[in-house]
Amino acid sequence: MEKKIELLLSSSPFLKQQEDTPAVMRQVIYSLLPAVLAALWYFGISALMVMLTAVSFALLTEGVYNRLNHKKQTLHDGSALLTGLLLAMTLPPGIPLWMAALGSFVAIALGKLIFGGLGSNIFNPALVGRAFLQASFPVSLTTWVAAGSLSNFGDWRGPAFTIPFIQEKVDVLTTATPLSMMKFEGHLTPLNQLFLGHSAGSLGETSALLLLLGGLYMVIRNYINWRIPVAIFAAVMVFAGGLHLLNPEKFAPFYFHLFSGGLMLGALFMATDPVSSPITHKGCWIFGIGIGFLVVLIRTFGGLPEGVMYAILLMNSVSPLLNRVTQPRIYGAVDDRHKAKSKP
């Protein structure tokens, strides 16, 4: 009688980290929490409702899709939750809730699922949803209200409960964001206001400080590639700083570009999305520099006051290409180009 010995064959890597996708997503959501709390502080119940709507419709879309197509349920990995939350952070607090819901649906369905789910998408899903809304409802997406505080938590900041596809003429006290004040009126918002976030804007583009805290945590825990935000910040500083030196009256100083608008949120939480950003370190540098350059270019010379979203989406589209051209040489292998040259 033979004795059977089981030999377990497996290939490298043999050392594996205990963390899986849900754990990482959870950590990213935790690091977004300070900014979420700030949004609730400044924009009260409106911010809360926008977040709840965006998140629940993101989860609903993914859940229903998986159910209809008899796929394995992927809700527990937390990516839909994060996408919904990130989308909410890019929206103005006074937006009608049905638009937030539609944006969430587009973000998950057209931004992620249609490409084959998490890991196959080319673009950052939250930004796809936001871009769809921006192009569809340009007025609602650029109606801003001034930041409040906890004392007026219960005040609605806009026509939240309008019926889908019906315009409701509600008089809301609107105000301009620091960026549009700069672009259309040449008015510079003081640095401390920008830094602490007591200014008009999207839910997540108010407090640069709290976003930086969350980002720092993610960098320390190595959830994001620090090269991307650093490259973005450096490129913005150099390009905006250079313009400011040329004509200080016309162009805003670099710190204004750094701390206003959605740059912090975009650079730390969206550009660093591991799926739609390059893998190689060199690619990450190019990716970040490209985003920083485009942001300043759109903000100063484009038709719109803010350009972080389009900058990231544009660079997302070239990140497969960046992966290709920055492929490191395998040790001992001969470079294709050298091979071609050495041929007689």
Partner: peptide, 20 residues
């Protein structure tokens, strides 16, 4: 079709809407 209070999905008449 829907009267003056209709909120149009402006994206649809922009070039991007054609692709959608």
């Amino acid at each position: 079709l829907f009267g003056p209070n209709f909120q149009p999905l402006t994206l649809m008449i922009l070039p991007g809407g054609a692709f959608f």
